[in-house]
């Protein structure tokens, strides 16, 4: 309901946005002539570093559309775009304190986070599952009893295994990687029997590993989550622009191409292909854009 209202308002008021007095992030961008985009170093294929300095990915491309729209809307001749690497622990504080204006990574849009930040209309749907060694014989969460399971700190996934654990009355050893690389390394080196995380991240890590055939994504879906592009809270003007830009992008035929570019084709730096056809949930999400969190 709230979402529909926001969207309706967004579409209705969008045309007049530039006429109003600028507030919040848009004013900040206009005054400083620069926009700071929060990006991730290794959240393939959403947001990651290629080579030394270049950030790219599905989320980054969507954000670039927003940045272009901002420049157009503010009628700026030049707009300085600064890519600021963030981590899962720092993205929210850095958003709140104004270091970054837009976060383009792989951030779950949750109700808890909405108390602290806002999200543009959801941009992706992921399932939380686990990656295991293909020869481990682990087929379900129930097989994890007594085994070490790794998650990355500061992400939303670490609690699902705990909640699931209680439901299934199994006992696992929780390990924490400081980032996805560390977590995957723990799986790769048999320190952990399973790595619980969003399936796209798992697929990306597997595809980028030395021997992709050694790993598989297994087990039940522990949770489904929408990803969102993060903005500051209580900034209706900027949110309006972001939502309208994203909605327009979702409706355009280019969206299919964008999806295929990152999820169905080889991606840099190593030319791996995730091979993840668009799920029904994802199709639904693009058809009816909403900023509802879980």
């Amino acid at each position: 309901m709230k979402t529909c209202l926001t969207l309706a308002l967004a579409l209705a008021a969008f045309g007049t946005a530039h006429a109003e007095e600028l507030t919040g992030t848009l004013k900040k961008i206009k005054d400083s002539g620069r926009i700071v985009v929060g990006v991730r170093d290794a959240s393939q294929p959403f947001s990651f570093l290629v080579g030394n300095k270049q950030y790219t990915g599905y989320s980054v491309e969507l954000c670039n559309k927003i940045v272009d729209q901002v420049q157009k809307e503010l009628k700026l001749k030049t707009l300085d775009v600064v890519y600021q690497p963030v981590t899962s622990q720092t993205r929210i504080p850095l958003m709140q304190n104004g270091t970054i204006d837009l976060e383009c990574g792989s951030t779950t849009n949750s109700m808890e986070r909405q108390k602290q930040v806002a999200f543009g209309v959801n941009m992706f749907w992921v399932n939380v599952r686990m990656a295991v060694k293909a020869n481990s014989g682990i087929k379900s969460v129930a097989d994890l009893n007594g085994k070490p399971v790794v998650t990355t700190t500061g992400t939303t996934s670490d609690r699902y295994i705990k909640l699931h654990e209680k439901g299934k009355s199994i006992d696992v050893k929780n390990l924490y990687g400081k980032d996805h690389d560390d977590s995957f390394l723990m799986l790769e080196t048999d320190r952990a029997a399973a790595f619980v995380m969003d399936d796209t991240l798992l697929a990306a890590k597997i595809a980028a590993s030395k021997n992709p055939k050694d790993f598989t994504i297994a087990g039940e879906v522990l949770s489904g989550e929408p990803y969102g592009i993060m903005l500051r809270r209580d900034d209706p003007q900027f949110k309006k622009l972001v939502d309208a830009t994203l909605t327009a992008a979702y409706k355009s035929p280019e969206m299919e191409k964008l999806y295929n570019k990152w999820f169905m084709s080889p991606i840099p730096p190593k030319g791996i292909n995730l091979n993840m056809p668009m799920s029904d949930k994802m199709r639904e999400l693009l058809k009816n854009p909403s900023d509802k969190g879980i």
Partner: peptide, 12 residues
């Protein structure tokens, strides 16, 4: 070093 390690699966 960590970035190189993870990009190439060569942490050790």
């Amino acid at each position: 070093t960590s970035v190189v390690a993870s990009n190439n699966g060569a942490m050790t």
